[in-house]
Design a protein around this nucleic acid. Sequence first.
RNA 1: GCCGGUGUGGCGAAAUGGAAGACGCACAGGACUUAAAAUCCUGGGACCAUAAAAAGUCGUGCGGGUUCGAGUCCCGCCACCGGCACCA
Length: 1014
Amino acid sequence: MSSSRRQYPFHLIEPKWQKVWDEQQAFRAFNPGEEIPANHPFALRHKLSGKVSAAQLPAKFYILDMFPYPSGAGLHVGHPEGYTATDILARYKRAQGFNVLHPMGWDAFGLPAEQYAVKTGQHPRQTTEENIATFKRQIQSLGFSYDWSRELATTDPDYFQWTQWIFLKFYNSWFNPKTNKAEPIENLKYPAGLRLPFLTSDKTELKNLELSRRNFRDGKRLAYVKEAPVWWCEELGTVLANEEVIDGKSEVGGFPVVRKLMRQWMLRITAYAEKLLTDLDTIDWSDSLKEMQRNWIGKSEGAYVCFSLEGRTKSVKESPKNSIESDSDIINLEEIDAFIQSSSERKADSIWVFTTRPDTLFGATYVVLAPEHPFVNELTTDEQRAAVQAYKTEVAKKSDLQRTDLAKEKTGVFTGAFAVNPVTDEKIPIWIADYVLASYGTGAIMAVPAHDERDFEFAKKFKLQIKSVVGSLKPFPSLAINSTFGYDDFSKLKRGERTVVINGEEVFVFTSETECFVGEGVAWNSANSEVSLNDLPTAEAKQKITAWLEEKNLGKKTINYKLRDWLFSRQRYWGEPFPIVWKVGPDGQSYHEALPENSLPLLPPTLEDYKPTATGEPPLARAKDWVNLPDGSVRETNTMPQWAGSCWYYLRYLDAKNNSAFVGKDVENYWMGADSPKSKVQSPKPDVGLETLDIGLKSTTPGVDLYVGGTEHAVLHLLYARFWHKVLFDLGYVSTPEPFFKLVNQGMVLGEDNQKMSKSRGNVIPVDVPVAEVGTDALRLYEMFMGPLEMVKPWNTKGVEGVYRFLGRVWRLFVDEKSETAFEQAETLATATQRHGELLELILLDGGIMDIAATPAQLKAMHACIKKVTEDLDGLRFNTAISAMMVFINEAMTWQTKPLALMKIFLQLLAPFAPHLAEELWARLHSTFGQTAPSLAYAPWPKFDAALLVESEIEIPVQVNGKLRDVIKVSVNATQADLETAAKNSEKVKPFIEGKTIKKIIVVPKKMVNLIVG
RNA sequence: GCCGGUGUGGCGAAAUGGAAGACGCACAGGACUUAAAAUCCUGGGACCAUAAAAAGUCGUGCGGGUUCGAGUCCCGCCACCGGCACCA
């Protein structure tokens, strides 16, 4: 590629314009109340200057990229795909008259810099800064129109002091189920015995009450401490969040993880499970992404059911609802949690299970506990004790990886104990098995083998009773003789036939004790002396039995989520330290306390050695002077996970330099608010009889208007950030309930071998390569021309040359060939020290460009192009927008004379895609014709004139019986009758209709004619 | 297994239910050139036929259906990609 002649002097043009934009601060976005320099292109476009209020500013448009983690490897050609898409849109929206916010920053905390520090002793900050410098240089070489004055890095103390500040907001808040939102901890309602003033003067009692209050309060905070089983990764020397563990391995590095009991900071994301779920309906994200979040949140509706124990009397008849204070009808997660927790302290008198199919209760033939269930030891009979112990040991030895890997084969052990099915009063065995998870529901299930695959498998293996209680309205797959089995044929079946009455009608249902049916159907076999579900459809049966259980205090309707609270601490150095200290109370118990806000930022200490300590404490514990405070309190030595900084960076961009708040109120409201000012975009005097696009009184979008990034963040960053945003919203710090209104995932760019790009495959193409060989504009164009943004597509170097050639054609459309040859010769002779940029002046415009009126054909081609490019940009269809410009250029290459006005319009269309080339030619067009060039970046977007696209004669396909037989030319005004006649008279059509009767003629005006003959 | 997405030339891909394959790559032929590169022009789904063509037939993963007409809508499958996965 490099051996061939350069298509155009991009090597001079691109740095030239990048410098101009930089010097002008051309892409700086202005906040309400900010001083706008009178000569800034934005000020000139909108006739603004000085301090401008939100109401005076045009409508905002916030275009955000997922900010990168600056790794040492630099950018490859896959990275700028999303950045290119957002930049094109940012430039387009700027031309349309929006106040565009388009920022970039660095997600810079992270493990690689720390691991490098462990190896070499180089401070992670230094590594981070070097990597940022590389990334910034590469990103800037691509000519993106970022507002660099808002650049931020999560590792910067000016930034992370606010990350710590937000953590304190979490710490000092609780979730009020009654108002369904986060509130300051001062509003917390204490249970009866703990309310002030205390009605005692006994000092010990008072002390204990104070302590209980503190424990209660600390247990309610949105950021709380929990001794919990966590994922410990030995290799990384830290714990990981659920979301960071994939198939029993760490997401980063793929190292094994094990369960370990540790004291950890948690964020109460579960309180927001329902909002995170339902608010997905209010935002414009892809279905697949929403679905991933829904699956992760994992809502299921069902009931808790109480099974009493054979041979034991229940000490108290209680349900979760009655055993704890509750403000709502449906018990919330927190209360369930507390209830389940409390069962470990109570005697084993009954077992609560969670089920989504309470309608199958009559078919529950055994109970299974998770091996870790607190009742197991107490329930196990002496005969079974050895077997149960052996099983528990075996399970504990298995890593979770093995537990899921071996999922195929069910294992378990009988405890020797029996429970009583609350509706049948039958004695049913209690087993333990590792297919029941301690961490979900109550850690116990009622097994209904006839209607649950897993229970069915287990029952078959251990020869447990299978009892069918739900009939299917369709034959079981194995009974279906063929797929066309009709409803009426049911009676022909030999087995499983049975009828029930639904809505007064007798219908067949199919039941089986030898096969599993998990679908919904009709209940049967489900009645006792008090309640009957027989003949009820599943949904009704669920309702009826749940109501009955509630009335008997044997159950409670409930909602369960898979989502767990977010494990928020890491045993690392290179992260935000917690603004927390630990103290020891008079009772000898240690407790935590928040640092005052004015002490932030809390900087990490400087270390010589970044490894964890020998005792397994985090590296921060090495800094004794930092950890131990004069008053005897001790600092928290964990740090926050990498996700913390990325949870709110999009808010800091709005007001990146604010020293008194994480974001200013008015500024936040302007850029994120749903009711920011309406646009008042002016329509300047049209250039060529064209009007500029008038945005009119279009209201703005709440939150970020467009967020582009990879799918890998579907359940991590995107869920965490939504959670933080919702807490900040509840506490009144932000004005919208959702941060990202529209989100698009760019598809991955594969290597030329159709494999994902990776070092080990050796198929990585660094961005610097195409930038040097064909220039940034060609790279940008190709990134978009490959295919639709969301699709996965392979890189093809030959394809890059195609768009590079296109830019060469554009160049040659505009410049005089002889002058370019002169330029090239001069450049060869010039020494390196000479200013090559000045040589560009040798290149002259093509003489065919004249300030003359365009022909109708020229106007038509131009306006077709404006229409297509505009519509495709609105739909993010960059690839077809580019092909429309190619079509235009292919035609314009044949023109003898090139009207100046059209040449300008074309450059405006090209500018978002190839801004350097467009700026260069734009400036030349103006200077050559003695005009002053307004900034192309802010030139009003051209508007197409539909009237110019109308043809006088059009070609109409003629079909006979749906097959194309001719294409006829008719006037655009041809009537239906004209078309019919013309079609019938076509010489090519005649042979197909002669001697036949025309039964019908379908005429679609301006589209086609179809003759139906018999 | 469940959820989501995608299947169209040699390749990347286009097509509000109305001319399938725009645009680009690769390829072939031609012009320019001492020559090459670059550039410009022309060609192209498959089959059948032919000296060459015209005409014709078949074509959007597979099988059905709706419609005057289906890449597009409906039903049933298959393959690939991504996610989740003993969540009761």
